[in-house]
Computed example of a mutant assay.
Amino acid sequence: MKVLVVDDHPLVWEGIKSVLKDEDDMEAVGWANSGRQAEQMLSKIQPDVALVDLRLPGEYGINIIKKLRPLAPKCRFIILTTFADHQDIKQAMECRVNGYILKEALPQEMITALRLVHGGRPYYDPLVMELMVQKQNKQERLLSDLTERETEVLKAITDGLSNKEIADKLFVSENTVKKHVSNILSKLGLKDRTKAAVFAASCGMANHDPHAVLLS
């Protein structure tokens, strides 16, 4: 298995080389410290797996992976990072990244991840999956606090409707909608309806990009 490392820290490269040197079926074949350098090396080396840092200077690892994929169709990609942010993990999943490993992982965990991913199975660090479960449980608890009508209003907000449009849709007064919106923001602990739309979208309630929702 040929492994390419895309990371701007030489110590990370040296550490991975050290971890893989005793593995008969693995070889660290190259190191790139930027997305551009990775593009040049990937075409030439055609690695089996590429470990890509999530945050390089001025670059985002997931965007780098999107650019690299066409250059090596058979290569599988693993995010290697110190970050376990929910949005980063979500974007990695949406991009169908093959793996997500934290830099604090033990050497044997990295070796296991590489073998699983090379064999066609995804690998996400257990701490990452725990974070996702905690986030999902928290979202479910918050949503369960909303009344049925408040849930309808939240869905309408996420669909981009103004208070007047929501009032017309639900056959209530605009003042009643405003009260529902206020209750929703209070229960979810959010400051405005745009953040509420983004939250709802993360729970699968949006039909489009919630960032396009305008304040009304």
Rank of each mutant, 00 (worst) to 15 (best):
116 L>W: 06
193 R>M: 14
8 D>N: 10
63 N>M: 04
137 N>Q: 14
176 T>R: 00
201 A>M: 04
70 P>E: 08
143 L>E: 09
29 V>M: 13
210 P>I: 00
132 M>G: 08
18 S>P: 03
115 R>E: 07
46 Q>W: 00
105 A>Y: 02
31 W>P: 10
162 S>G: 14
181 V>H: 05
203 C>T: 02
9 H>Y: 03
5 V>A: 14
211 H>C: 02
138 K>E: 14
133 V>T: 12
185 L>P: 13
212 A>L: 13
184 I>P: 10
214 L>A: 15
131 L>S: 13
66 K>H: 09
153 V>E: 03
110 M>L: 15
84 A>T: 09
165 E>G: 13
147 T>P: 07
171 F>Q: 14
46 Q>K: 04
102 L>W: 01
137 N>C: 04
87 Q>V: 08
3 V>M: 10
52 V>K: 09
99 G>L: 04
75 C>Y: 11
187 K>N: 01
149 R>K: 15
60 Y>T: 05
12 V>A: 09
118 H>W: 13
82 T>E: 15
40 Q>G: 12
151 T>A: 11
94 E>I: 03
132 M>T: 10
19 V>M: 15
137 N>M: 11
39 E>N: 05
65 I>Q: 09
149 R>I: 04
13 W>H: 15
41 M>N: 05
104 E>P: 06
53 D>G: 12
120 G>C: 08
179 K>D: 04
51 L>Y: 00
169 K>G: 11
205 M>K: 02
86 H>L: 13
205 M>Y: 00
45 I>H: 04
213 V>L: 07
152 E>L: 10
133 V>L: 12
11 L>A: 14
3 V>Y: 10
124 Y>D: 04
143 L>S: 08
188 L>W: 07
204 G>P: 10
114 L>P: 10
114 L>F: 14
194 T>Y: 02
102 L>E: 01
35 G>F: 01
53 D>R: 13
53 D>L: 13
21 K>E: 15
102 L>M: 03
210 P>Y: 00
148 E>C: 05
210 P>V: 02
53 D>C: 12
94 E>P: 06
145 D>A: 11
23 E>M: 04
204 G>V: 01
